[in-house]
Amino acid sequence: MQNISVQATSASQRNKATPPNAKKVKLQFDYLPSQDGIDQNLLILLHGLGDSRSPFAKLGQQLKLPQTATISIQAPEPVPYLEGCYQWFPSFDMLTGDLLTPANPERMKGLLRTRQLMDEILQHLINDCGFNPSNIFFFGFSQGGTVALDTVCFGKVRNLGGVVSISGYLLEEQRVDRRLGDGYAGYVLITQGEKDTTIGSKAEAEKRFKAVEQQCAASAEVSQVFITNKDHTMPSSEREWRLIHTFFGKNMPRRNIELENMSDVYLVNP
């Protein structure tokens, strides 16, 4: 007969996650525990091309998501000739300075390198820090959104919680057929400026969105929202921030601390 261990428990026994160890991963990051002291969820923030992790670490604090620790990760490659600026994959022609096109194989090679680095840090966050994969969410802008979507769709960890991508899609050259039953089954919100000159026309944005949908399971909740009078920029309008907060509020799990602290609640371990 299996032995059963019953013991009284309290919320304080499992409030704090183990902070990630910079020596165990290659990517640089800034980690902050939840402001309310309960590390139930983790929000991974991924900056855009030419930025760095520090502004996004500050953004993570400003969002003030309950029961949510934050980690702002810095892209692995410096932008050539621009100090303090980083990229998730090669983006510029070194001779002309022009942006690389989907025909250049260096973009996809760089993204695959980044995917491996993201897999490494996710395994550390799950196995060593104690975060549940389904409680890990992403917020990414432009290239950072591309990396977030690539991670949940093609990375080794298949059951991550959700993604908010600001004007970021999968790379055009990675549009591949999804294997039946193997699509991402979580939550995705993509916000897109109606005047986004980087992405192009509304039709082009919708085409890229469909490519994301093709990598998701039928059970996934995937949406695209166009923002009036917005270019290829971070959110600035009340409407867009409300959409983002609503997404996290709806989809991030929450613990009932009041119930856990009741004297007649017990932890049962087989």
Rank of each mutant, 00 (worst) to 15 (best):
D128N: 15
G130A: 09
N132D: 15
S134I: 07
I136M: 08
I136V: 14
F137E: 02
F138Y: 12
F139C: 10
F139W: 14
G140S: 08
F141T: 04
G145I: 01
T146D: 03
T151L: 08
V152A: 06
V152L: 03
F154A: 06
G155D: 01
G161H: 09
V163H: 03
V163W: 08
V164W: 02
G168F: 07
G168M: 09
G168Y: 09
L171T: 13
L171H: 11
E173C: 01
Q174W: 05
R175E: 08
R175N: 12
D177R: 09
R178L: 05
L180D: 13
G181A: 02
D182Y: 05
D182N: 07
Y187H: 14
I190P: 11
T191K: 02
E194Q: 15
T197D: 12
T198V: 15
T198F: 13
T198Q: 13
S201R: 02
S201V: 01
K202P: 04
A203T: 13
R208D: 00
F209C: 09
F209R: 00
K210I: 07
A211I: 06
V212A: 01
V212P: 02
E213W: 00
Q214E: 15
Q215E: 03
A217P: 04
A218L: 06
A220N: 01
V222I: 14
Q224E: 07
V225N: 04
I227D: 03
K230P: 09
D231M: 03
H232W: 09
S237Y: 09
S237F: 04
R239V: 11
E240V: 06
